Simulated scan of single mutants.
Amino acid sequence: MTDEMESSKPDSTEADVRRRVLARTLSEPNNDGDNQSTYARSKSYPSKPESNDDNNELMDAVFEMPTKCAEQAKEVGKLVVQYVVDHSHLPHWLLDNEFLISGHRPPMPSFKQCFASIFRLHTETVNIWTHLLGTLFFIIIAIYFITRPSSEVHIEKKITFGVFFLGAILCLLFSTLYHTVYCHSPKVSKLFNKLDYCGISILIIASFIPWIYYGFYCEFGTKIAYLLITITLGTGCIIVSMWDKFSAPEYRTCRALLFIAFGLFGFVPTCHYVLLFGFKHAFTTGAAQWLVVMAVLYITGASLYAARIPERLAPGYFDIWFQSHQIFHVFVVAAACVHYYGICVLSKHQSDIGDCRKGVLPSIHNAFNSVYQ
């Protein structure tokens, strides 16, 4: 009998322990579904229930943090992509580049929405910012240049350079406005598209004027002739740009070729300059090398724009970044900066020449003497 009682003690003790563990586990809160870890925490800190609650709240906050971050990331993402659509969902008047598959803005019949989209990511974001920053850059340079004292920068130079600054600012500003509001409505899109192409013609005219003026500084007849031809060709490009059909996508190649042909006209006075003053003088004092670099940048950018490279090679991969129009914009700003540097170098030739009348009047006097002798 005694042996039976002694043999039953371990069993009764073990059963008693199990009952106490189970009772303690059920009496304590269990937020994570782990009874053993809950019991361990309660047994480790039996006299500090408040500390246990603080720890639980801290752990809950830590576990909730990734969820909150994910929700915030979704909210930020909505600012970027909630309003963009695929190319197939665009109306016919917004269809332009079929190789850009996604990331397009839908029609936004509000100028406020259009300008707010400047700070969001879509197919036109880089196009807007490249020329917007270029506009601000040339405005700052123009203000600094024109406000210099007359003792440092002569009024004649301010006017000549001012023509170039005005052309660069108008071209880049019209482009910025077009890429910002062209999704407003068909009427607004056509209007600013025309202004965009007019701006390109204005920039080409404004780029030729200072170079011709300083390059043929004492060649008055030649200078006037080239200036008149440049203005006439530029006016013709502006008139063609005002034609409604000219802005249609099927005329993309024609547009590029027209402006390339107008830009290539610059090689005519350049070759004349080389024949008149010599090759070495043209590519040192005449800064013709910078004119060539500018032309290469313009032609390369326009060619990529017309061929839609690189998005044509991988449709959908260049919807937001590095599309042909963006590359063209970067090349336009770079070419304008190169041209500005070139005419700065060329304008120094004026101080070397001095007053043209000192060289012209003796030549006329010698010509009369040779006739009457």
Rank of each mutant, 00 (worst) to 15 (best):
S7W: 09
S8Q: 14
P10N: 06
V21T: 12
L22G: 01
D32H: 12
N35Y: 09
A40T: 05
S44A: 13
E50G: 00
N52Y: 05
N56R: 14
D60S: 13
V62P: 01
V62S: 01
E64I: 00
M65A: 15
A73H: 12
K74N: 07
E75W: 08
L79K: 11
V80C: 10
V81S: 15
Q82E: 14
Y83I: 11
V85Q: 13
D86Q: 09
H87Y: 15
S88I: 11
H89F: 08
H92W: 08
L94Q: 15
L95D: 11
I101W: 01
S102E: 13
H104S: 11
P107C: 06
P109M: 06
F111P: 04
Q113G: 04
S117D: 13
S117G: 12
T130H: 10
H131Q: 05
L133T: 02
F138N: 05
F138K: 05
I139V: 14
I143A: 15
T147N: 14
S150Q: 08
V153K: 05
I155Y: 12
K157G: 00
G162R: 09
L166M: 15
L170F: 15
F174N: 10
F174T: 02
S175K: 14
T180K: 11
Y182E: 07
H184Y: 02
S185M: 03
P186Q: 09
P186R: 10
K190R: 14
F192M: 08
N193K: 07
K194D: 04
I200S: 04
I202V: 13
I205E: 08
S207F: 04
F208E: 07
Y213M: 01
G215P: 04
T222M: 12
T222Q: 10
L227A: 12
L228T: 10
T232A: 15
T232M: 08
L233P: 00
T235L: 09
G236C: 13
D244S: 08
S247T: 05
P249N: 13
P249T: 06
E250G: 01
C254R: 10
R255P: 06
F259D: 11
I260T: 08
V268I: 15
P269T: 00
C271P: 00
Y273P: 00
G278D: 07
H281T: 07
T284E: 05
A288I: 12
V293W: 11
V293A: 14
M294T: 06
L297D: 11
L297H: 11
I299K: 08
S303M: 04
Y305N: 03
A307I: 10
I309C: 10
P310Q: 05
P310H: 06
E311F: 13
A314L: 07
G316N: 09
Y317M: 12
I320F: 14
F322I: 14
Q326D: 07
F328W: 14
F328C: 04
C337I: 13
H339I: 00
I343H: 01
V345N: 09
L346V: 04
S347T: 03
K348E: 10
S351F: 03
D352C: 02
D352M: 06
I353G: 02
G354L: 08
V360T: 06
L361R: 10
L361C: 04
I364S: 05
F368S: 06
S370Q: 15
Q373R: 11
Q373G: 07
